[in-house]
Design a protein around this nucleic acid. Structure first.
Lengths: 245, 245
DNA sequence: CGATTTGTTGACTAATATCAAACTGTGTGG
DNA sequence: CCACACAGTTTGATATTAGTCAACAAATCG
């Protein structure tokens, strides 16, 4: 499969694209790079000249405070371009790191600029992606701001499931997600110890389980309910939502 | 002053715009509306046909969870277009409300589309604004995720000060900000009681004060330090930063 | 296989929430 | 002009959630 297919699929899950639009994305020169888990792909303060399409594996965006505490801002999955904003924001204000072995496709900003200048619809689709990104951040604020520990975890997994559905990476309410409890803690604004206990409670109640990089939503209904999850903020089109059924 | 001047000033604090670009923004038809404090301007679920430029006053974006708790996601100041994303995300995923009497300028999406189709630089400037918006959300996640109560409050005010500087609304380290402690609590993910106590501590230490809609940063250095504030994530240009001096 | 990372447990502590009441200021109608 | 109503702030007492520390177990890796 051509590396950009996953991107086209993702864009189409959010925006209608004509075949010519898709072809223009397919024509993008992509520089493939494989990285092992825990690689820092781009760092706060960098001025990247290209953006990074996730083809395989998982990445996370994170900020480290002056006091040395880390907050994970987002997890990213195949089809995402987590640093698309560097097209217009020249300085990275956070880190991008691989949390698993990953296949990345780097696309030069010059080529992206050429694309958005010639294909208005694609430009809008990409703009839209960055806006959905922002919508996800907003929900993340709600998560760490007002939800209690178990809701936070449930919501995070519910969101991940919903986004993975759009790229066909959920089977049987199970999906790969190679995350440590300490990473979960940094994402949810909790301590690892507390994450561990919340996880055990969910396991005991037969709600969900995380084992060896595999998330199992034993009772999806309970997960969605516990997280207070409403997928509206992901702004997926009905096409994408149909996958779910 | 023409209503779009404040927008042009804001855009120029983040992006270089030629005089023709500025003129194209100035030519936008703007429908002015005055609203009293506590008006809900746009609501979650709405499909607005225009976006809202803040000309005077303050607004906030907020989400309400299924359990009835409210999280404020952002405060907005004159020059901001807090619902610009509705150009591409048709359904509002949160509320926009006036927290003070406000003068708003509504700009039809049709006119904005016409503008971005004809003025590439302006389109990029607007896209950039939405990306800065996202960068602010990211920092907000850090704020509620890892900082303790007093850092959160200090950071919020430090950010507000920095953004108000760019539109010339800070004098003598004081600025108007008509917010209740309960709104602060909803923004910071804290209880009103705790906000009240943190505020009192800052007052007692001669760091800052909030009285009758007026924020006074008695010791700006201490505020910035307490919040661990680094303005980099606001992605202002050096032009904007020069105002600070 | 040892070494390191990750997960688990228990005891204790700290930060912040909750609840309820009282207090302050400000505007309003009699 | 006063009294009241209301919104916002302040206070004290108590409860709860989640954090910290420290030790150990289990899994993973070179």
């Amino acid at each position: 499969m051509h590396p950009t297919e996953i991107l086209i699929r993702k864009l189409r899950s959010d925006t209608h694209l004509s075949d010519e639009d898709a072809a223009s994305v397919r024509a993008l020169p992509v520089h493939i790079r494989e990285v092992p888990a825990d690689t820092t792909i781009v760092q706060q303060g960098d001025h990247p000249k290209s953006s990074c399409l996730i083809i395989k594996g998982f990445t996370a965006r994170a900020k480290v405070t002056e006091t040395g505490r880390r907050q994970i801002l987002a997890f990213h999955i195949p089809g995402d371009v987590p640093d698309l904003q560097t097209l217009f924001l020249k300085t990275m204000d956070h880190d991008l790191l691989a949390i698993s072995d990953a296949t990345l496709g780097f696309i030069d900003h010059a080529d992206l600029f050429r694309l958005i200048d010639t294909r208005r619809t694609v430009a809008r689709a990409l703009w839209r992606e960055t806006l959905i990104d922002a919508a996800v951040f907003r929900e993340w604020i709600v998560n760490v701001g007002v939800r209690d520990a178990s809701s936070r975890l449930a919501h995070l997994l519910a969101e991940l499931r919903q986004r993975l559905l759009a790229v066909g990476l959920v089977a049987d309410e199970e999906f790969q997600f190679p995350v440590t409890q300490s990473e979960l803690a940094d994402a949810l604004g909790l301590s690892t110890v507390h994450v561990n206990r919340v996880l055990q409670a969910f396991r005991a109640q037969g709600v969900l389980d995380i084992r060896k990089n595999l998330v199992t939503l034993v009772d999806v209904g309970k997960v969605l309910a516990a997280g207070g999850f409403d997928p509206m903020y992901l702004h997926q089109t009905s096409t994408a939502l149909r996958h779910e059924a």
